[in-house]
Design a protein around this nucleic acid. Structure first.
Length: 885
RNA sequence: GGGCGCGUAACUCAGUUGGUUAGAGUGCCACCUUCACACGGUGGAAGUCGCAGGUUCGAGUCCUGCCGCGCCCACCA
């Protein structure tokens, strides 16, 4: 054994780690070498498949992105080092409302589908001046071009951020949810679900956002607590002088009242059941019926049913086969109606029309004020002459909003497409149980959501920038569409835009003609496409071998606010198409909270720009912060954690420089303290590995980092520093350097998933050549086998004993106010005899590290276990600076 | 209204199946230019583990009930 260690010359290295340069250099190297490429030749069981969240590119870059995407990358890098063949794609979610809204604002335009396409129209960011004018109206194709233009720019910004953060994505697997492949996949999904009988269209009351002019699904609802008023309003009873009082928060729906209901066991109203009520103002005769759904102690215990105030109204309307009196239109304003016509019977149609004429065209809030003021007039009474408005009470109640909307949703009958889910709840729950949720309690959210599902999935949206339905409707000879017999696109001709292409068997000229066809102009709910991300990557129905190899995926990382949407719909789709789960594990990242524990978001103005953090703390430093948070735990943003990350990077750089600069002949690890150190490190490897196997990177990082600082740099390095330079003891020197290098190599690999840049930098100095693995990121994850050549220490506690003894010496120096570097002329070290015995094999390293020239050991049985105390000490005189220089 | 999570040092957080004097980092105090690192180092002070009961030889950890914060869900009359 006369080989010499391969060393570096520290003088050739910079004084400090130059992170920005290293980041761009390594990123280029990794991309050029294909380090992250998926290998389709390797078998499924050696492949680790990620179903990456496609970020909404029209949103701003956000620390939350950096946080959660780092989590995925850390897990992926660990799996890669385990030898797994990684499939790690990246998609961009660019279709949907957020994009439309951003495009509208950015270019200050609006889509008007009635306009014709304008060739060569270009778009520029709107200036403040232009914004003051009315937005420019453009055709649907032009609007889509604007969307494509802006999302392409947004994607560049995301791509640059991901690259800089070191996400180990295989960029050959990139997709965008509006690209041809994704649109075709979504349309293929539609055709498959249709064939399976899971889709239907119906004209029924649907939740409608009056600002966005589109239907929305249950998953996109937000309850918002609003101030409101219970208005007590007197109704008449047909054929008697009796009146009863209902309480309502929506008096403006009085003209749409179609019935009155009370609880069957409510004796106050029992005598009214089966009779008819007379509404105030409009004097409409409506049935009174009993329903268990009425709460006796809410309001006055008797209520009016309107078309439509809420979902329960819809239910009653269906069950009781009530008449439809729709007064809210698609625009959200009150529609023109005429009393005295069918469905609009009134005991006094002239009065009713007079009242309604004032309301027509108003928004609900204005109509409410007006109705309330009229209800204070005696002549508005249903019967008799007492003022109908009997009282008002301020309350707070929850109102349903579209999550992105600003005004309450209305229930408006429209024709929409739905996907059946309600009849498959049990299946959905069973699938959820087959998936392993990290942390496990997040599975409850899925379960709760699924159990409470009340509506089938409304998949159609009346928007523009989205994936078209591959559907046309035949027109009869009167030119009337037949929605029950849709014409479906040919599955081999996707993607298709039915507004451009003619359906199979028709000529383009037949569009809109009697006996011809008309296109479905709706687009899919954006989740209809996003719920196919695993199948988009696996090329479902196009490439069976690839689908077999990549589906189901191994992990789905995502955040918890989209459990009811992205996770839920993806599970629903995989179940519906192939009766399988889409992935084995769901990994839920927490949120980044600001110091006040509120979620950071753009609207609150507390967002921190990620690129600034990367500039200030380096990529590794930012990743360190992200990886410090456990899965599912919301974390307050704290710049201190980023400082710690940067500090760790610096320390790794410097410690590595020292270790790899030490040369000498290669020797086996033989000395007790070296063996003790290696043994302790093996424990860390076991701990970190066990954590990573559960995708728990944070405890792994914590264990690694704790060992690195406390045991490696602060203790072991100091303890063996002198021996590592002692040319008079080749065996001892070689043992120290071998252990130091083993330690560094192992620690670098344990850190590599979190700190890809600094670890690769250091790895490249010596280990790349020595190990035969050019990149640390393809080097094997540390294993027990690497420690087999190192004999176990004689005494497992000898390393800790050495540290205790050195600490005692340092304590003596500190309390005397001298530096740790000061030499010790004489020293009396006291401890229990058993501790002194244990110190024997490591004593020379302790004394060298403490710079002790002469010493004595004194047994003192009064001291505690493991406690060392300096009983007497005499320091060397302080070196004279002048003569030293 | 139902459910989930959290509450540990001034701050941000660890505390595995209940087991000696409860840990880390930051911050704070004192000291040290030390030959990998002052983007350092050494040492120190600092906690009724939200509150109240209970189980146990023993509870930060298990059980019950409260309080506070956050979130998820719930038919908005």
């Amino acid at each position: 054994m006369t080989d010499a260690f391969d060393t570096i010359d520290p003088a050739t290295l910079p004084k400090h780690f130059d992170a920005p340069t290293a980041e761009s250099r390594w990123d280029e190297t990794w991309q050029a070498s294909g380090l992250y490429h998926y290998d389709p030749e390797r078998p499924r069981e050696q492949t680790f498949v990620v179903d990456t969240p496609p970020p909404t590119v029209s949103g701003s870059l956000h620390v939350g992105h950096v946080f959660s995407y780092t989590h995925t990358d850390v897990i992926v890098r660990h799996q890669r080092m385990r030898g797994m063949n990684i499939f790690y794609p990246m998609g961009w979610d660019d279709n949907g409302l957020p994009t439309e809204r951003r495009v509208q604002n950015y270019y200050h335009i609006r889509c008007d589908p009635s306009l014709a396409y304008e060739e060569g129209l270009t778009f520029e960011a709107a200036s403040a001046k232009i914004r003051k004018k009315r937005p420019r109206l453009v055709s649907r194709p032009n609007f889509i071009e604007a969307c494509n233009q802006l999302t392409a720019e947004d994607e560049k910004a995301f791509l640059a951020l991901w690259r800089r953060m070191g996400l180990s994505v295989d960029w050959r697997q990139e997709y965008a949810t509006i690209d041809d492949h994704c649109r075709a996949t979504a349309q293929r999904s539609f055709l498959d679900l249709y064939a399976r009988g899971m889709l239907y269209s119906s004209d029924a009351p649907t939740m409608w956002d009056v600002d966005f002019q589109t239907a929305v699904a249950q998953a996109e609802l937000d309850d918002r607590e609003l101030d409101s008023t219970f208005n007590d309003i007197a109704f008449g009873v047909e054929g008697s002088d009796e009146q009863f009082v209902i309480s309502t928060t929506r008096p403006e729906l009085l003209p749409a009242c179609v019935a009155v209901a009370a609880h069957p066991e409510d004796e106050r109203y029992a005598h009214l059941i089966g009779k008819h009520a007379i509404t105030p103002m409009f004097r409409v005769r409506v049935p009174i019926f009993a329903s268990d759904l009425v709460e006796k102690d809410k309001g006055t215990g008797i209520l009016m049913i309107c078309t439509f105030g809420d979902q329960t109204d819809v239910q009653w309307w269906r069950e009781q086969k009530l008449v439809l009196r729709q007064i809210i239109g698609l625009s959200g304003r009150l529609l023109p109606v005429t009393y005295g016509t069918p469905s609009w019977e009134s005991l006094d149609a002239d009065a009713a029309n007079r009242y309604y004429a004032e309301l027509e065209g108003l928004r609900p809030d204005k109509a409410r004020e007006l109705v309330l003021s009229r209800l204070q007039q005696p002549d508005a009474a249903a019967t008799g002459s007492e003022v109908p408005l009997r009282g008002q009470k301020k309350i707070k109640h929850a109102v349903k909003f579209f999550e992105k909307g600003d005004r309450p949703l209305e229930l408006v009958p429209t024709r929409q497409w739905f996907c059946r889910l309600l009849d498959r709840k049990d299946d959905l729950l069973a699938k959820g149980d087959q998936i392993k949720w990290h942390p496990p309690f997040m599975g409850h959210r899925y379960r709760t959501w699924t159990e409470n599902l009340g509506l089938d999935w409304c998949i159609s949206r009346q928007r523009y920038f989205g994936v078209s339905f591959p559907v046309w409707y035949p027109l009869d000879d009167a030119g009337k569409p037949h929605y029950d017999t849709p014409i479906l696109a040919d599955a081999t001709a996707l993607p298709v835009d039915p507004t451009v292409t003619a359906p199979p068997g028709f000529e383009p000229a037949q569009r809109g003609q009697p006996s011809g066809f008309q296109a479905e102009t709706d687009v899919f709910d954006t989740w209809f496409t996003s719920s196919m991300t695993p199948q988009i990557s696996s090329r479902w129905q196009i490439d069976p071998a690839r689908h077999q190899a990549l589906f189901p995926a191994d992990i789905r990382p995502q955040s918890h606010e989209i459990i009811r949407t992205w996770a839920f719909y993806t599970i629903a789709k995989a179940m519906a198409h192939e009766d399988v789960i889409p992935w084995k594990h769901v990994l839920i990242s927490g949120w980044i909270l600001d110091p006040d524990r509120k979620k950071m978001s753009k609207s609150k103005g507390n967002v921190i720009v990620p690129t600034e953090l990367l500039d200030k703390y380096t990529s590794d430093g930012v990743r360190y912060w992200a990886a410090s948070a456990r899965l599912g735990v919301d974390t307050a943003f704290d710049e201190k954690m980023l400082s710690m990350g940067r500090r760790l990077v610096t320390k790794i750089f410097n410690a590595s420089k020292f270790v790899l600069a030490q040369g000498g002949t290669v020797q086996p690890v033989s000395r007790e303290i070296d063996r003790g150190f290696a043994h302790k490190l093996l424990g860390v490897v076991r701990e970190a590995t066990a954590s990573y196997e559960e995708f728990e990177f944070a405890p792994a990082l914590r264990a690694t980092e704790g060992f690195f600082w406390a045991s490696f740099t602060d203790s072991y390095l100091e303890l063996v520093k002198n021996r590592a330079r002692d040319e008079s003891d080749e065996a001892g020197r070689g043992s120290a350097i071998a252990a130091l290098r083993l330690g560094l190599s192992v620690l670098l690999r344990l850190f590599a998933p979190v700190l890809p840049y600094i670890t690769e930098e250091v790895w490249s100095w010596v280990f790349a050549k020595e190990s035969g693995h050019a990149s640390v990121h393809r080097a094997p994850w540390p294993s027990e086998a690497e420690f087999e050549a190192v004999p176990a220490p004689e005494d497992a506690a000898s390393f800790d004993t050495a540290v205790e003894a050195l600490t005692a010496i340092n304590r003596a120096k500190t309390s005397a106010g001298v530096g740790v570097g000061r030499g010790v002329q004489t020293l009396v070290l006291a401890a229990k005899q058993a501790e002194l015995d244990r110190l024997g094999p490591v004593l020379s390293d302790v004394l060298a590290a403490g710079r002790v020239i002469s010493h004595e050991l004194a047994a003192n049985e009064e001291l505690g276990d493991g406690v060392f105390e300096v009983a007497e000490v005499e320091f060397e005189p302080k070196p004279d600076k002048k003569s030293a220089g």
